[in-house]
Design a protein around this nucleic acid. Structure first.
Lengths: 231, 231
DNA sequence: CGCGGCTTTGATGTTCATCAAGTAAAGTGG
DNA sequence: CCACTTTACTTGATGAACATCAAAGCCGCG
């Protein structure tokens, strides 16, 4: 137990494996001095459309949604993601202001590093640059392909898709608490909340899912997959 | 007129200003040796979904569409872009195979550089890495925000949006030859081709546009903008 | 306990896809 | 270059899918 290393948790951070794997101990310690960990409560805004981007932020734990607000006040949910799949709204180098907002769907912990430091690393450490670029590209790819997938489906298919997304990708469990309102699901898949609810009721009636308020139990995952595919 | 420089046109390439601005003369000459220019005819496939990515490609002139094919053979058009806004399907570092296909909508010229060379540059030249990263991020941003914009509009709004896109961004002229079929417009905005045609007919009837086969003249651009916005 | 927001369900109307049938345009082979 | 074939376009009629509106129930929170 070396005291010098105590105040910093970065060496053991999972994120280190991913984008910071190319940094040596010195740099990791430097990163530690520059980074700040912030805790957000469910519902908190992490960053806001239009704000200046000053930090490179990544999600350590929790769940967030990326969204924007339309001129008549409605929300469009772009994606809902877990750690490693959210990095400062993606536009860290392409824009100086956030294009979209991010809010916490569950209590979340975010790490912030001043953008200057990241930019410096990016300039000087090619391996780091490639790994960061790769990660951000993957996130963009995923958003785009998810959007295209959703566009192919009808109402039932889209709702099934969301339920499968939570089951398989987010919670890895067939029983989970929905972290979003019905309206947020609607804003995500581009449908009206009334019809999302109606479809959930249909699924319930047909024994595909069970619903206890916010808690969902997926009973027949195969049927859900069929609906999602042919939808 | 130095003979040594003659065989290569890279020094004067517009692309040099954009992503290759950080390369010195030596590197530019090296780039020249590695690059290959390819001409494509309208309709040609430039790269194909699933193929291995071996080269970094960018569009020098022409017009291309990025698209994918669904399981029942339909196309989804992701974006239609001009030079500087197409770079190897975007996934050069995140994927080893093309996720989407690219085809030429007009006769086009594409520059190819072996990916190894670009990767090497990216590793060693931080400025280059940042400028490439920035460019690719911007392209991704644009695709995502365009998709979100389209999603907000109804049929007429979407068709108006496409006409304005060609008028303002692609051709910068109120008279132009449509480089795409009605069906391709439909695949782009996610509507049926019958309804795209119907809407074009409506616009024609209302004196908003004139149509001579593939040639379109935008008569009342203000009305088109209103329809696109409130749509 | 009462208020406001989220949810639920039904009824109604709009928007858009689909189908069909016909026309124009663009290839294709003799 | 013309006849033939195929592909793209056009228009109308019909029906399905979904949004919207409205009213009632539920739940959490002060």
């Amino acid at each position: 137990m070396d005291n010098e290393f105590k105040p910093c948790s970065c060496e053991n951070c999972e994120f280190r494996e991913v984008v910071f794997s190319t940094l040596d101990e010195d740099k990791i310690l430097e990163l530690c001095r520059f980074k700040e960990e912030q805790a957000y409560r469910k519902g908190d805004i992490i960053n806001h459309e239009g704000e200046k981007i000053t930090d490179f932020k990544y999600l350590k734990s929790g769940l967030v949604k990326l969204f924007r607000r339309t001129s008549d006040g409605d929300e469009q949910v772009i994606t809902i993601t877990r750690p490693f799949e959210f990095v400062s709204n993606l536009s860290i180098f392409s824009e100086d202001k956030y294009k979209y907002s991010v809010s916490a769907l569950e209590d979340s912990v975010v790490c912030s590093v001043r953008l200057d430091f990241i930019r410096e690393l990016f300039l000087k450490n090619g391996e780091f640059a490639i790994s960061l670029m790769t990660r951000i590209s993957k996130i963009n790819d995923k958003i785009i392909s998810q959007t295209l997938d959703i566009r192919l489906k009808n109402l039932a298919g889209r709702v099934a898709f969301v339920l499968l997304y939570f089951t398989n990708e987010i919670y890895k469990s067939r029983v989970f608490d929905l972290p979003v309102s019905r309206k947020e699901i609607a804003d995500y898949i581009g449908m009206s909340s009334a019809n999302v609810i109606r479809t959930l009721s249909d699924f319930k009636r047909d024994g595909i899912i069970k619903v206890y308020g916010k808690t969902i139990e997926v009973v027949d995952i195969n049927k859900l997959e069929i609906i999602s595919k042919r939808g």
